[in-house]
Design a protein around this nucleic acid. Structure first.
Lengths: 120, 120
DNA sequence: TTAATATATGAACATATGCTCATATATAGG
DNA sequence: CCTATATATGAGCATATGTTCATATATTAA
């Protein structure tokens, strides 16, 4: 039928299952945005940044000191975190303080840690 | 001090904050594992796979039919999902049925969708 | 055994990602 | 204005990632 896939032949595609799933699955349009959101948690450096900010607001310099990465790399990471609305900032003179903009962060990371430690 | 970063000079590094965060932040060793776990949610294709499996167990062929991707690509993706313990499978003749191995999946994806839809 | 089918897997390849390096911008002080 | 400092940003680069293509493996049937 489809040009993509349609050769589970003898077995015959489980149309009932596919239909059910198609009806239930959420809108595809936003999935790329959701994926981009989760990408933020898919990097150890950003995970540490988020964990740090969950404890206290911090300036860029302190963050790079804390994680032992360059100021430039830190600024780049903070930029990507800003783009997905995970962090906000305030300026105090030359210093820029970042903090979490989303209360879900801790919950999400905790679930991830839980998953990883649960299993063998 | 450190060779990495130590030039927030006039401002002077907020040692108290850094110390507090260092004490509170979770073990770094597992962070890469946690990051790899979240990487799974950072791809739209895998998100869809996980959402589908959250509704019903499905065989490889049905999954590739559903998501319009090749059988090979699907097998590769399922392999990575297996490696982080997100899915399990059972064989029934030639057909392999995959299903979720972790109850957190729905909760995590829901939180992500919530974050994305919450903001402007 | 041979043929057919469902799935798995390795290699190659194009794109995405995260860092560095150099430099730009912003703010404060002299 | 000039200098110093904190942060931001663009370009380049090396590595990671996701797909395709070809082929291997497993299972069933004839």
């Amino acid at each position: 039928m489809t040009e993509f896939r349609r050769d589970c032949q003898t077995h015959f595609v489980h149309d009932d299952i596919i239909r059910k799933v198609r009806e239930t699955i959420p809108a595809e349009e936003d999935l790329y945005v959701v994926a981009d959101f989760f990408k933020m948690f898919g990097d150890a450096t950003r995970l540490k940044i988020l964990q740090a900010l969950a404890i206290s607001e911090m300036c860029v310099c302190d963050l790079s000191e804390l994680l032992h990465i360059s100021q430039s790399a830190m600024s780049h990471q903070l930029k990507t975190l800003r783009q997905v609305n995970l962090v906000k900032f305030r300026k105090e003179g030359k210093v820029v303080f970042y903090s979490l903009k989303d209360e879900h962060v801790n919950q999400i990371i905790e679930t991830g840690i839980q998953h990883v430690t649960e299993r063998e």
